[in-house]
Structures are given as structure tokens and as C-alpha cells.
């Protein structure tokens, strides 16, 4: 069921897996019939939809400031229009591109190293037989999520910094002056490590929820068929995790141009702007600090457009690979 399904109204036909023929009879419905059939469902979406329109789409009109020299006391209607000047200023600035590059470096590292971490931890937890121990570990590993960045950065500085325990240990084994917090080349890794430490445990929760959704009989059936634990992992567990994994991966791609603002702001001086400036800190220093809202909005708009393109693209790709993605085609 990859691509040949051109007619909207035909969707129902593909609903259950094609291998199982007990699907309701294929028939075309008129728009009116579908409205009648879906009216309860549609009504259920109304409150949420209203919420999004009022609290997200109405404020989005505020993006006009991307084309203005916005002054809060004049308001959106009276602030002078400057056309594309905010975009031109931003995109003509080499520092903007350097910040974009740094952002991508960090988000890609996080996709590779941080994204799979909660899955791995969830699988490890899931494979633990003792449910007491499992619960204990589960209820400890999520705790770092609740420690603020100021404190995490301080802790990381005291462990990995020039006077830190790790640095002393490295010194003892012959790696001298390994101040990991002041090293521009290591910076993306440092930031990723901190994120892994803070959020891996918290991230497992959603995968655990997916794991309990897997039918236990599938395991039993596979075991009876002679599949060992690795094969069961491959054929039962991973496919069970696939929908939510793909979903989260796609959503992550959408925010590929954003990395933890506070976390990086607290540490960029250690490595200098060349290595430590990311898009969000760039916007902060080139817009918000001075109260210039135009350039910030311009960057936000572009980030959103790129995120949209990535999400839609990744979703298409997921469909080609036979996955559901965020929504169906």
C-alpha cells in the first residue's frame, strides 16, 4: 500500500492491512455522506481547532513585524514598513551563517547520539525482569529533567572544567590540560552530552508507553516459532516502536534549527562566538537585547518555513518507506 490510491474518497478501502479481506465494502461516498458520517469526529475537533486559531494563528499575524521596524509603543499598524530589509540585514551577516552552521552541527549530533538514547534505555528497562528494580530505575532516571540549565552547566563545569574531577583523572592517565568545557572543537559534543544526561530518562517514558502497547501474544507466538530474544526484538519490539519513533524523528527534524537557548547562552563565552553562537543566541543578541523585533521575527519566519519543508519532506519519505509518519498522504 505505497502509492496507488489516487481518489480521496477511496481511502477506507486501504484501512485494514490489505492482506486481511474483512474490510467494509468499498464504496464511494459523497462529501455530504462523509460529513454525515464524520460529524461527531469533526465536532470533537472544534474546541481544539478554535484554541489553535485564537491562541496561535491570530498571534501569528504578529509576523508582520518581520517586514517592519516595529516599535512596541506604535503598535503593528503604525510601525514603519521596511520591506525585506530585516531579511537582507540578517542574511547578509556572516555571523548569521556561522550561527546556522553551528546550530546544524549540534542538532545533527543530537539526532545521531541523543535521539536513539531514550529508545535504547527504554529497551534496556523493558528487558529487565525484576519489575521492582525496573520501576526503581525508571523513577530515578527521569529526575535530571527537572534540574535547570544553570545548575546543570555548573555541575558540568565542576566535573569537566579545568579543575574538574574528570580533568584530573584524564591528567593522571596522561591526557594533560583536557579542559573539556573550554574546548571549541568539543563544544557540540559537550552540549549533546548534557542533553543526553538531562533528557534521556525523561524521553524513555513515551517509548515505554509504546512498548506496553505491544501485544504480548506476539512475543509468545514468535518464541513458539523459535525466534530467540534478538529476533523477537527485531521482529516484534522494534516494529511496535516504529510508529512513535518515526513520528518523533519527523517532529525533531522540524526543530532542527533550534537548540537549547539557555543551555548554550550560559556556555558560549567559554568557546567564543565562532564555535558557540547558535541561531537562537544570534537572534537574542541581534534583536532581542536591543529590542529590535523585526530581525528576530524574520529569522523565526525562515526557521518555521525550513522546519515545515523538512517535516513535510520527511513525512513523504516515511510514506515511501511504508510508514505512517505524522499523518497519511
Amino acid at each position: 500500500m505505497t502509492d496507488v490510491r489516487p481518489i480521496e474518497a477511496d481511502r477506507t478501502a486501504g484501512q485494514p492491512a490489505p492482506a486481511e479481506p474483512q474490510a467494509p465494502p468499498v464504496r464511494r461516498r459523497t462529501v455530504w455522506q462523509r460529513l454525515r458520517r464524520d460529524r461527531t469526529m469533526l465536532l470533537l475537533t472544534v474546541p481544539g481547532l478554535l484554541f489553535f486559531l485564537v491562541f496561535h494563528y491570530v498571534p501569528l499575524l504578529g509576523y508582520v513585524v518581520a517586514f517592519q521596524s516595529y516599535q512596541p509603543f506604535l503598535g503593528f499598524t503604525q510601525s514603519p514598513w521596511v520591506g525585506l530589509a530585516n531579511f537582507a540585514t540578517t542574511f547578509g551577516d556572516p555571523a548569521f551563517w556561522s550561527a546556522t552552521l553551528n546550530t546544524l552541527k549540534i542538532t545533527l549530533l543530537q539526532l545521531v547520539f541523543f535521539f536513539p538514547a531514550p529508545i535504547a534505555l527504554a529497551l534496556l528497562l523493558n528487558s529487565m525482569l525484576s519489575s521492582k528494580l525496573r520501576r526503581f530505575v525508571q523513577s530515578v532516571v527521569y529526575l535530571p529533567h527537572f534540574i535547570g540549565w544553570v545548575i546543570i552547566v555548573s555541575i558540568s563545569q565542576e566535573l569537566l572544567g579545568g579543575t574538574g574531577v574528570v580533568t584530573h583523572l584524564l591528567d593522571a592517565v596522561g591526557v594533560h590540560n583536557a579542559d573539556l568545557t573550554n574546548n571549541p572543537a568539543f563544544f557540540p559534543f559537550l552540549v549533546t552530552l548534557q542533553v543526553i544526561w538531562k533528557n534521556t530518562g525523561w524521553g524513555t517514558i513515551i517509548y515505554l508507553a509504546a512498548l506496553v502497547g505491544i501485544d504480548q501474544q506476539l512475543y509468545e507466538a514468535a518464541a513458539v516459532d523459535g525466534a530467540n530474544r534478538w529476533r523477537r526484538l527485531w521482529h516484534v519490539t522494534l516494529p511496535g516502536l516504529m510508529p512513535v519513533t518515526i513520528l518523533l524523528l519527523i517532529l525533531n527534524l522540524g526543530s532542527i534549527l533550534s537548540v537549547g537557548f539557555e543551555q548554550i547562552l550560559l556556555q558560549r563565552d567559554n568557546v567564543g562566538a565562532d564555535a558557540g553562537e547558535v541561531l537562537d543566541t544570534y537572534v537574542y543578541f541581534h534583536g532581542i537585547v536591543d529590542g529590535q523585533w523585526g530581525p528576530s521575527a524574520a529569522v523565526g519566519l525562515v526557521k518555521g518555513l525550513i522546519g515545515t519543508a523538512l517535516i513535510l519532506g520527511a513525512n513523504k519519505l516515511a510514506h515511501v518507506l511504508g510508514q505512517e509518519g505524522v499523518y497519511r498522504r
Binding site: Q157, E158, G161, G162, T163, N182
Partner: peptide
């Protein structure tokens, strides 16, 4: 001091404890 760009509290402590 290697932590010369650390958050404020940390650098205050470094001075206060004679480091």
C-alpha cells in the same frame, strides 16, 4: 582560572574560597 566564563555564582565562589 579555567572557569573564568562560568555562571556568576561559580566564579564568585572561586574568588571567595581563595581559588
Amino acid at each position: 582560572h579555567p572557569d573564568s566564563n562560568a555562571p556568576n555564582n561559580r566564579t564568585k565562589n572561586i574568588f571567595n574560597n581563595g581559588s
